[in-house]
């Protein structure tokens, strides 16, 4: 596939994106450094388990739906989550691949991306419905929660249609313009929204894994049999 588009669209796809990406990276660096400045609670107790192994296990928790009752008993919800987040990665990936390595976006690859975007769009609709209609979800939802899921759902839909035209050798359409304008908006908006939760995910999971791993709850490799009579 070739990306034969106007100079204006190419400017949006490349220079504008790079500037916005740099802004996003700067915001994340500030965000992460602010969190890293916070003191870590000390752990002076003799450990029953391994804190480092616990942290690694905890980070991989996202791939182990059986490890938490909340995902174990909600398999459908977990599968939705998985597809949705794979679609996020692919959609963001498409915004890089289209301008930088358009030859990679072959019909087969484009169709695969479209399948995930299409599914994620449907999942997004279901999640919007859930947020509006399930009382315990609605009561905890802020406007940012609604806006974020609606924005993502529209983004998937736009990306899907833009790629449809791309597949049909129409790389410059209004849909592609909207797709990249939305990407630009995302890069500027996400650091300030709940969508940036993936930056916080490692912190939460590592904190959890260190605490519960060290105590032998999630990682039972005891350092000493004093603390584990079953050894």
């Amino acid at each position: 596939m070739e990306n034969n588009v106007s100079h204006a669209l190419l400017f949006l796809e490349e220079e504008v994106q790079y500037i916005c990406l740099a802004f996003m990276a700067l915001m994340y660096v500030i965000k992460i450094s602010l969190l890293l400045k916070k003191p870590v609670p000390p752990e002076k107790a003799e450990l029953k388990g391994d804190r480092v192994a616990g942290a690694f296990e905890s980070l991989l928790n996202v791939l182990k739906p059986w490890s938490m009752e909340s995902t174990r008993k909600n398999t459908y919800f977990y599968v939705e989550f998985l597809i949705f987040h794979i679609a996020v990665v692919l959609t963001i990936g498409a915004t890089f691949l289209i301008p930088l390595t358009p030859q990679f976006m072959t019909p087969a690859v484009t169709q695969l991306f479209m399948i995930f975007m299409g599914l994620a769009f449907l999942i997004g609709l279901r999640r919007i419905h859930r947020r509006f209609t399930v009382p315990e979800i609605r009561i905890i939802s802020s406007p940012d929660d609604f806006f974020a899921i609606i924005l993502m759902t529209v983004f998937f839909a736009t990306g899907f249609v833009a790629l449809y035209f791309w597949l049909n050798k129409m790389p410059e359409t209004a849909w592609m313009w909207i797709f990249f304008l939305m990407t630009t908006f995302f890069l500027l908006y996400v650091p300030f929204s709940k969508i940036s939760h993936y930056i916080l995910y490692p912190f939460g999971r590592v904190n959890f894994g260190r605490t519960f791993g060290g105590r032998g709850v999630t990682n039972t490799k005891a350092k000493s049999s004093d603390w584990n009579p079953t050894l």
Binding site: K38, P39, S70, I137, H197, L200, N207
Partner: peptide, 22 residues
């Protein structure tokens, strides 16, 4: 009161509601 665990916990909730059954 904002050590790294508390700060990450305050900032990290995505309101997914998975805790409601827990």
């Amino acid at each position: 009161k904002l050590n790294r665990v508390v700060a990450a916990s305050l900032a990290g909730c995505i309101h997914c509601g998975m805790c409601s059954d827990a």
